[in-house]
């Protein structure tokens, strides 16, 4: 049976507006509601559906971060993952470093499919899946909106700027999810109880003895440029008048 590895990142909930700290040293995230990155929930949901169709066996959910990330792993277990692994480490972990750690996890776990979100909604990098696939030496199918398994290949429809692209990749492979791949299930109370008994393992990133790759330095955070406050017009003629004034529709 195919084994699936899914990554879950702890991020500020997408409904919460995050602001820059007044001194520009970072984002004011203390006390904000934290959730599983929405794209990662979609990744886990896809794995669960594969298992329900009899296409997959064990599903392992992995995250990298501090102890607080156990919360997101518990969410993953409640959704239906079989096991969870927290790779403990403090501070920001950039995509390349995360990919290096996840490669080590892959070596130990030997999954057939790795499913990740296409981007995390905090740093919006959209890199980790591609970097991991590269270090792993395996194919990638990013921005997936449809995924079909057939023996040792996966046929993946990808959302690209020009429309929908279809790739066929040999397994093992890495898939990153786009929003329309599926709609994640809601967690029911009994699932949360059941999740408490599922195994959640921790591993210190330091024990992996990986060399730290070159990294970007974050120098300053600032709020985005604000647009000037606009006007509300009464009716269509007033709208048309303003547009003409600004040189449009002439």
């Amino acid at each position: 049976m195919r084994k699936i590895l899914v990554t879950l990142k702890r991020v500020v909930d997408y409904n919460v507006r995050v602001r820059v700290k007044p001194d520009g040293s970072g984002m004011a995230v203390e006390g904000l509601k934290m959730s599983v990155n929405p794209f990662d929930e979609i990744a886990l949901e896809e794995a669960l559906r594969m298992r329900e169709r009899g296409e997959a066996g064990e599903i392992l959910a992995v995250t990298i971060g501090g102890d607080e990330c156990q919360q997101q792993l518990r969410t993953g277990l409640a959704m239906g993952a079989d096991r969870a692994l927290l790779v403990k480490c403090e501070g920001e972990v950039e995509p390349l470093a995360a990919a290096g750690i996840l490669l080590e996890v892959i070596r130990r776990e030997e999954p057939d499919i790795v499913i990740m979100g296409k981007q995390a909604i905090d740093d919006d990098c959209n890199q980790t899946g591609q970097m991991l696939a590269t270090l792993w030496g395996r194919p990638q199918a990013t921005f997936a909106s449809e995924l079909n398994l057939n023996g040792d290949t996966a046929r993946v429809t990808r959302e690209v700027d020009a429309g929908l692209e279809v790739l066929e990749v040999q397994l093992p492979a890495l898939i990153t999810t786009d929003l329309r791949l599926n709609e994640p299930r809601y967690i029911k109370l009994p699932d949360i109880m059941k999740a408490r008994r599922k195994p959640l393992e921790t591993l210190a990133a330091d024990d992996l003895e990986l060399a730290a790759p070159p990294a970007l330095k974050a120098l300053a955070y600032e709020p985005p440029a604000q647009r000037e406050k606009g006007v509300v017009v009464e009716d269509v003629p007033a709208l048309m008048g303003m547009l003409r004034e600004r040189g449009f529709l002439n």
Binding site: V12, R17, V18, R19, V20, M27, I121, D122, D123, D124, P214, A215, L216, K217, A218, L219, A220, Y221, E222, P223, P224
Partner: peptide, 13 residues
């Protein structure tokens, strides 16, 4: 970053 809620200055190594 953060869906455009902030702008980050970074330096490459």
């Amino acid at each position: 970053i953060y869906a455009g809620n902030a702008v980050l200055t970074v330096e490459a190594p």
